[in-house]
């Protein structure tokens, strides 16, 4: 069986303050055959090396974009990354087919509980609805969109629960790898 090459595109501007993402990232790094790429660690000055990033995308089949859910979206470096890396004529457009057929998904941590992300909840939209711009970005680039992995209510999690979520995440990555 052919294993799929999974890239974890990770972005957190203050990782030392996030126990959830530290645990998730550590779990991801322990899964065999997964590439983890820490964007804030690599580009502290937002000076993204476009050709390096494109090369990484070309050598992977699945991209898992792991980040906290800031203002219902990504941290700004991911946006910068999208703007610069997903070039016209490469990622989209008439000749932009580099990413066709790959899979894209998000792995998100959110402070609010799941009940808050409902039409009648505090945030009025589901997480999937709020991710619409990212979903459309992926689809425009010809990638398959997978429903996000969301860790809810991060402020209230016990250490044990954090470890559980991290283990689930590792399982998910292994599953993506095994196709």
């Amino acid at each position: 069986m052919n294993l799929r090459r999974v890239l974890v595109l990770f972005a957190h501007p203050a990782l030392h303050r996030s126990r959830v993402h530290r645990a998730m990232l550590r779990a991801a790094r322990e899964v065999q055959g997964i590439t983890t790429h820490d964007l804030y660690q690599t580009y502290p000055d937002f000076d993204i090396d476009v050709s390096h990033e494109q090369g990484l995308l070309l050598t992977h089949d699945v991209v898992v974009c792991q980040h906290p859910f800031y203002w219902y979206s990504t941290p700004p470096l991911i946006k910068q990354w999208e703007d610069l890396v997903l070039e016209h004529g490469w990622a989209y457009g008439r000749d932009g087919k580099a990413l066709h057929g790959k899979t894209w998904m998000h792995a998100i941590s959110a402070g609010g509980r799941e009940e808050a992300y409902r039409a009648d909840g505090h945030n009025r939209f589901t997480v999937s609805q709020l991710l619409a711009p990212l979903e459309q970005t992926a689809r425009l680039c010809g990638m398959q969109w997978r429903a996000p992995f969301v860790v809810h209510g991060t402020h209230l999690l016990s250490d044990h629960e954090v470890a559980q979520h991290a283990a689930e995440y590792a399982q998910l990555l292994a599953g993506l790898r095994d196709g």
Binding site: D83, L84, L86, E87, H88, G89, G93, R94
Partner: peptide, 14 residues
Amino acid sequence: IRDSAWDSSTLRAE
């Protein structure tokens, strides 16, 4: 033009 995907000239052309 590379790097700056902020430039839209190729989009305009397409």
